[in-house]
Design a protein around this nucleic acid. Structure first.
Length: 864
RNA sequence: GGGCGGUUAGCUCAGUUGGUAGAGCACCGGCUUUACACGCCGGGUGUCACAGGUUCGAGCCCUGUACCGCCCACCA
């Protein structure tokens, strides 16, 4: 790097510097110069790699994206300036339900996997009222088309914000290489017995008609009602139970009470008969039954909730499932096997009124029937209770038995907790969220989804002579064939014509959970399968930035996959960002209508202003943001403008230059050395907010105090050498400050840099002690003290002048300052010039004594 | 029920090993001051949520409580 006092690069200053247009100007230049290109020739030790969160491509970016991606970008820019080759890719999560839903609505189509591919299909210009059914490949094509459009918009916004991503390193979770990685990861786990399939009761969304995982659940408070229902005993007496789901009475397989409950102890082992359906069910004992709840005895159905699943499994109860995949009650014949009843005619008559109704409607209907049969005691008592929903779903989850694929997690819980402890968390307390989740895991990870747009489960099953598929013997493709789609590709040793035929094969119809692919983002971005050389240079990565809401999904599953596949952490640091909240401290969401889109703010206040706001929030903080009162964004804009103007001022008067001899100059550079240390330390600790705060505080004092104090000297009041000292010091300071601000305010710093320095500030080196101390031959503690005393003295005189309502330029003929300010004497010339004091002395006074001149020029003050 | 974070000026928030409570915004007053009026200077009486404890000394450490937010568990 060239010295700041070298004159080889000409200074070219604009007449009236402004922030407007800097984004377009510099983004074009950065793209042309490939300023943020990753240098893959560097060894792992010289690389800083980032596992960038791939935003979900299903609509538009909001202010929260700008917020969190800015944090990452600050770190990326800092590491780049520290000399690292920064691997900063961008991914698009365009795989999964949100995309499917958007495509359905946008084009007015529905996927019907039974249809053949139609190469000529084009969606109509406007979506029809009645959705058009199309094949899976056609549907996937439309997903690809729409996400490509969305991704262009996303990239444009991220570039506008100034993310220093290497845009050649983009990936998409639905793209072939991501599918290859995802499928290879699955097949390797399958080979090692870590992925398995299992037929079991599974959480099920009746609208999406798919299984969902524990991590995708959320509770919602829903209105409901307790219904007191009578179950008859053989002796004619009755047992009363409370239920919120009377429509599941046909699915009842037992009643259950606590083993120590004296009221029911005598009844354990006896039978009762279900109302309306006349099914004999046993009364059983289980510790999970709560004597305090309802009547203390509950109905076990297959399946009303997860507790039913536990009871059913642990008490070895039969299955009598009535809810089918679409959430309605399935047709069935009472009296047939598994549906034995004391009165099949009556049961069938009752059930006919419920069949094919969705659960909520069936509930209303069965209440009528129970009321008629007098089995409903009293009226339903309304309550509000938490009900489990798929986080993206609209109706309560059901529990449906189906064949699903799982990845083993339960047996690794202890190891995963240890992995969590090996990782650096920023902020540290976010670690608890991870541990909390791991400790609360209830089962292995269900990864299969009965959806269409995603990475297919890459296996087939042989079809026996009887025409039935044998799920116990999945047929796996060779890894070199990946990615494959078992619905259109045939397994090795078979031909397509054998699909579905006896002696042939069938493809697994399911796709993987989006997290099953996203959990491999370090492997996808890093070239695990396709580019081992690259992978060795970037993995394990340095940083995973992400939100705390997806610790249980993305973070957890990524740690799991890296552990299973590489026996390592996926990255060494997890930086967890908070959420941007609305002014009422509520999370922004589309349904609340409080989502703030960033583009208007970026255009009005400039990207640097918005970045300043983002970087000002401490790590993990949840800032409240009111778009009507842009607060910190305006401050960021003001800071950026100040940098433009201060730099212009510094560079307007850059001659003469020479040795830095004056106390204030030497003290300022000594303080700057301390600042470099602090900002570096904070950024190293991922505390971008504190780093910015320190730099900002220094900079405002630099402008308002230091530059004001040395202004006269720069104009030559005290001779050429004294002016040269100031000019040289200012150039060192400007050069340093621009580099300290560069990670935060990339546009304005680059603009100023371009006025007088070669290359890009973002490719310059991070400031060091040497940069600021070598021009003054090391730290000058005495000068530092002079600087402090002078600043205090300046504040004191300013205060008194303001108190006395004197103009700033009012001349003070004589001033006696309290002796505590005497430390400023080595800088008395500068001090007097800035305060317009002609005759300065120090004495034993409590407050400065100022004697104002009637009129006349200030001593040596230029331009006054 | 378990866990995590927060509570400091009207508002948004800093406050790093305990040592005289801070910034910005807003508000008020002053200043055409040759880098910047998108500017500059000045103006702060706050039960640091509450109660107790440790300490010479607590916004900071300990115990408890309240309220706000989030995560998890429960869900008959």
């Amino acid at each position: 790097m060239s010295s700041p006092v070298d004159r080889s690069f000409p200074i070219a200053l604009p007449e009236k510097p402004a922030l407007e247009g800097l984004e377009q100007k510099w983004n074009a230049r950065w793209e042309e110069q490939q300023t943020y290109q990753f240098d893959r020739s560097r060894p792992r030790a010289d690389v800083y790699s980032i596992d960038t969160p791939p935003p979900t491509v299903s609509g538009s970016l909001h202010i929260g994206h700008v917020f969190s991606y800015t944090h990452t970008d600050v770190i990326a820019r800092f590491q780049r300036m520290r000399g690292k080759s920064v691997f900063y890719p961008m991914g698009w999560d365009d795989n999964g339900l949100p995309t499917e839903r958007r495509v359905q609505n946008y084009y007015g189509v529905r996927c019907d996997p039974s249809l053949p591919y139609d190469p000529s299909f084009q969606p109509p210009d406007t979506p029809p009222k009645q959705p058009i059914s199309i094949s899976r490949p056609n549907f996937v094509e439309l997903c690809g088309r729409l996400t490509t459009e969305d991704e262009k918009v996303f990239e444009g916004l991220f570039r506008h914000v100034g993310l220093s991503v290497d845009w050649k390193l983009t990936y998409a979770t639905i793209a072939p290489n991501a599918q290859r990685v995802s499928q290879a990861g699955f097949l390797r786990l399958l080979k090692r017995g870590l992925a398995y399939q299992h037929e079991a009761p599974t959480l099920w969304d009746v609208d999406f008609k798919t299984a969902v995982a524990q991590a995708e659940l959320e509770d919602r408070e829903q209105p409901g009602a307790y219904h007191r229902i009578r179950f008859a005993r053989p002796d004619g007496s009755a047992i009363e139970i409370d239920t919120t789901r009377p429509e599941l009475i046909p699915a009842c397989v037992a009643l259950v009470a606590h083993p120590d409950d004296e009221r029911y102890k005598p009844l354990f082992g006896t039978e009762v008969v279900t109302p309306l359906f006349g099914v004999r069910v046993p009364i059983r004992a289980h510790a999970l039954a709560d004597p305090e709840k309802g009547t203390g005895i509950a109905m076990i159905c297959t399946f009303g909730d997860l507790t039913d699943v536990i009871w059913w499994r642990e008490l070895s109860l039969p299955v009598r499932a009535v809810i089918q995949a679409n959430g309605t009650l399935k047709p069935l014949t009472w009296g047939s096997a598994g549906w034995e009843t004391d009165d099949a005619v009556r049961a069938q008559a009752a059930y006919e009124q419920l069949v094919n109704l969705p659960a909520s409607k069936a509930r209303t209907k069965i209440v009528e029937l129970l009321r008629e049969s007098t089995d409903l005691l009293g009226e339903p008592r309304p309550i509000t209770h938490p009900v489990k929903f798929f986080e993206k779903g609209d109706r309560p989850l059901e529990i449906i038995t189906s064949r699903q694929w799982f990845i083993k997690t339960m047996e690794f819980r202890e190891t995963l907790l240890e992995r969590g402890r090996q990782m650096q968390w920023h902020p540290e307390f976010m670690r608890h969220r991870f541990e909390n989740w791991v400790n609360g895991l209830a089962g292995d990870w269900c990864i299969s989804r009965q959806r269409f747009f995603g990475v297919p489960i890459p296996v087939w099953y042989p079809v026996g002579p009887d025409g039935n598929a044998d799920y116990s013997k999945p047929l796996c493709p060779a890894e070199t064939r990946l990615p494959i789609d078992p619905s259109t590709d045939a397994p090795e040793g078979y031909v397509e014509a054998q699909r579905g035929k006896p002696g042939g094969f069938v493809g697994d119809p399911d796709i993987m959970d989006t997290w099953a692919t996203s959990s491999l983002t370090p492997q996808i971005a890093g070239g695990w399968i396709d580019d081992p050389d690259l992978f060795a240079r970037v993995f394990p990565m340095d940083l995973r930035p992400q939100g705390h809401d997806i610790i249980r999904t993305w973070l957890f599953t990524t740690v799991l996959r890296a552990h299973l596949e590489h026996d390592s952490l996926p990255w060494t640091n997890a930086a967890i960002n908070g959420w941007v909240l609305d002014p009422d401290r509520k999370k922004m969401s589309k349904s609340k209508g409080n989502v703030v889109t960033p583009i208007g703010l970026l255009e009005e206040f400039g990207s640097d202003g918005v970045r300043y706001w983002a970087a000002n929030v401490r790590p993990g903080g949840d800032p409240a943001f009111d778009p009507r009162d842009p607060g910190q964004i305006k401050i960021g804009r003001r800071l950026s403008i100040k940098i433009l103007n201060a730099a212009r001022f510094a560079l307007l008067q850059s001659e003469p230059r020479g040795t830095i001899t004056e106390s204030l100059d030497r003290g300022m550079l000594t303080a700057l050395d301390k600042l470099i240390g602090e900002v570096t330390e904070h950024l190293d600790a991922y505390d971008y907010a504190r780093g910015l705060e320190r730099a900002e505080t220094f900079f405002w004092a630099f402008c308002d105090d230091y530059l004001e104090l040395v202004k006269g000297r720069r104009y030559g009041d005290f001779g050429s050498d004294a002016a040269a000292s100031a000019n040289s010091a200012i150039l060192v300071a400007l050069d340093t400050l621009l580099r300290l601000f560069a990670p935060y305010l990339p546009f304005v710093t680059e603009e100023v840099w371009s006025w007088w320095r070669p290359g890009s500030v973002h490719r310059s080196s991070w400031p060091s002690s040497t940069d600021v101390l070598s021009p003054i031959g090391g730290r000058d503690e005495a000068a530092l003290a002079v600087r402090l005393a002078t600043q205090d003295g300046l504040a004191e005189v300013r205060r008194l002048k303001s108190l006395l309502k004197k103009p700033t330029k009012a001349v003070i003929a004589r001033a006696v300052l309290p002796s505590r300010f005497a430390g400023l004497q080595p800088a008395a010339r500068d001090f007097q010039a800035a305060t317009h004091i002609r005759d300065l002395s120090f004495g034993d006074v409590d407050e400065a004594q100022l004697e104002f001149a009637e009129e006349g020029p200030a001593p040596g003050a230029a331009g006054v």
